[in-house]
């Protein structure tokens, strides 16, 4: 199976369990390389469906304060594209089987070399790539490279995207379609947008691939709301916030996954909107 097929298969498995897939973002190199590797491995061991490994960039203009801070810390530790790929390789060596998707910005990939990047992604064992500043209009050549290696280049749509444009974007995406839940940057919010259901319905009508919702999803209650309507739930900032305040990051990462998996299941949740400590 190639990366695209492995991601597709993962969404199907989640669906047979009647829940949305849990997709967790965590940046490579935060707060240091060893800890991030241990956190990512723990996320996988505790049942995360897809790992999103963040690749730091000096100017992350789609990110809010939490991910900005985490990726800038990683950068100051010397994290770069080569070492992000090494993180993927080490996760595979430690037995992680779940799909791994790299998420970052275009310029470090350009500097690394697009062909070399796609080839090294495949060799390291990555299954997909998300680059939010590389829209379909600009990325045709890169998408062809990814397709040739079976690497999923995952496109994004936002609530501001027109239906005609969404239809075109849905044709370009591989693995799943990334629904940005709100017009804004990444980061925890008190509430998800009230019209989220309508947005997911609109995208459902034009996309053949699974739909995963990210940006602003932070509590189990929000995750459950998303899981009722979408095929995947993407969480990043809330996980980082949990891990960075923890005495034992690995233990808290494990706890975070099981809370979220519970939320995606059918068991009754506590009424509080905040995570139990």
């Amino acid at each position: 199976m190639n990366g695209i097929e492995r991601i597709t298969q993962t969404f199907e498995n989640a669906r047979t369990q009647q829940r949305a897939a849990l997709i967790l973002y965590y940046p490579a190199g935060y707060p240091d390389e060893q800890t991030s590797l241990a956190v990512l491995e723990t996320l996988a061991q505790n049942g995360t469906d897809v790992l999103e490994v963040g690749m730091p960039f000096s100017d992350p203009l789609a990110d809010g304060p939490t991910i900005q801070h985490a990726t800038q810390t990683a950068l100051s530790q010397g994290m770069n594209t080569r070492r992000c790929l090494e993180t993927v390789r080490l996760l595979r060596r430690r037995g992680v089987k779940q799909p791994i998707v790299l998420m970052g910005y275009l310029n470090p990939v350009l500097a690394y070399g697009m062909e070399r990047f796609v080839r090294d992604c495949r060799d390291a064992g990555a299954d997909g790539v998300i680059l939010p500043d590389f829209p379909p209009e600009e990325s045709a050549g890169f998408r062809a490279l990814c397709d040739a290696e079976g690497l999923a280049f995952i496109s994004l749509v936002s609530p501001a995207t027109s239906i005609e444009r969404a239809r075109q974007i849905a044709e370009t995406t591989r693995g799943f379609l990334y629904l940005v839940s709100l017009t804004g940057v990444t980061g925890a919010r008190d509430a998800l947008p009230p019209d989220l259901e309508a947005f997911v319905d609109r995208m459902r009508a034009v996309a053949q691939t699974p739909l995963a919702v990210g940006f602003g999803v932070s509590t189990p209650q929000q995750a459950r709301r998303v899981s009722r309507i979408a095929d995947g739930v993407i969480i990043g900032s809330a996980l980082i916030a949990r891990v960075e305040s923890a005495l034992n990051p690995v233990q808290d990462a494990a706890g975070f996954v099981s809370q979220m998996l519970t939320a995606l299941g059918t068991v009754e949740l506590p009424r509080s909107e905040s995570l139990p400590a």
Binding site: P132, D133, A160
Partner: peptide, 12 residues
Amino acid sequence: GGQYIPEVLMPA
């Protein structure tokens, strides 16, 4: 040149 921006900004 070009338009290397997040999808949210494309309509704008």
